[in-house]
Design a protein around this nucleic acid. Structure first.
Lengths: 125, 125
DNA sequence: CCTACTGCATTAGCCATCTAATGCAGTAGT
DNA sequence: ACTACTGCATTAGATGGCTAATGCAGTAGG
């Protein structure tokens, strides 16, 4: 996992996003164990508490669950919950964008055009 | 202008957004003077420096300009610059949304569907 | 000139957030 | 039991962003 310590986005979020993507992509199967706090902490060169905070995020969203003394595991509905979570994030960002455009006087077609441009740019990657 | 002091979004941004929308909507004409730092500060019950920071934002984006001792005025291309600025903001948010969806394994149609939902919800307001 | 207004620069305090340090508590193999 | 792992709770330090206090500098009218 790639972590940038001097990014404006917090480390624990970078970690959470990484795991979330992996779960959404099905890289981890339900019931499969995840790297322990200390192992992952050592891996990304950060304090175990920071990793824990990332796992907390994921547990709250139902992607994973934890067993004290045993470890961390992918939840049964982990993949589905990851997708649901992602969908909400996307929706929130789109709502913000639509709202911003509307406030500035852009009409529906203007906003749609920007969205199309964004989609096209993504495909070219 | 409506300001919420205990919002997570900074006061200076709330002020800047309010003025930006007004300029984009053509409520202020080019060359027209804006409320002075202290007047607006008194109006929204905040320190003049906070208002200044809002005006700084707008000046950097070319919406307004300032003359020491005289006041603040809407730039000639203020409205156009406001629209351009808004377009970039919308684009940035859409890019983030598209990226998030893609990372989570959503395909183009999934993402489009969320966008449509967002647009529909906006129209119903 | 002098007063009353302008915008602006400097400084400091406050506060939220992130990260780390440390120790406790549960599990399991030997 | 003992050891070596687990996750977790508490606390503290550090950092950055936001807001305010204060004073300087420029403009214009009486």
């Amino acid at each position: 996992m790639k972590i940038d310590p001097r990014s404006h986005v917090p480390i624990y979020l970078q970690i959470a996003d990484g795991i979330r993507e992996a779960v959404a992509a099905g890289i981890y199967s339900p019931g499969e164990s995840l790297p322990s706090l200390r192992v992952l902490a050592l891996d990304v060169q950060v304090n175990p508490n920071t990793v824990q905070r990332a796992y907390d995020e994921l547990a709250r969203d139902g992607l994973i669950y934890s067993r004290r003394g045993k470890g961390l595991f992918v939840a049964e509905q982990g993949k589905a919950n990851a997708l649901e979570r992602a969908r909400k994030t996307v929706r929130r960002l789109f709502d913000q964008g639509v709202q911003a455009g509307h406030s500035a006087g852009m009409d529906a077609n203007d906003i749609r055009a920007v969205f199309q441009a964004s989609m096209s740019a993504k495909e070219k990657q």
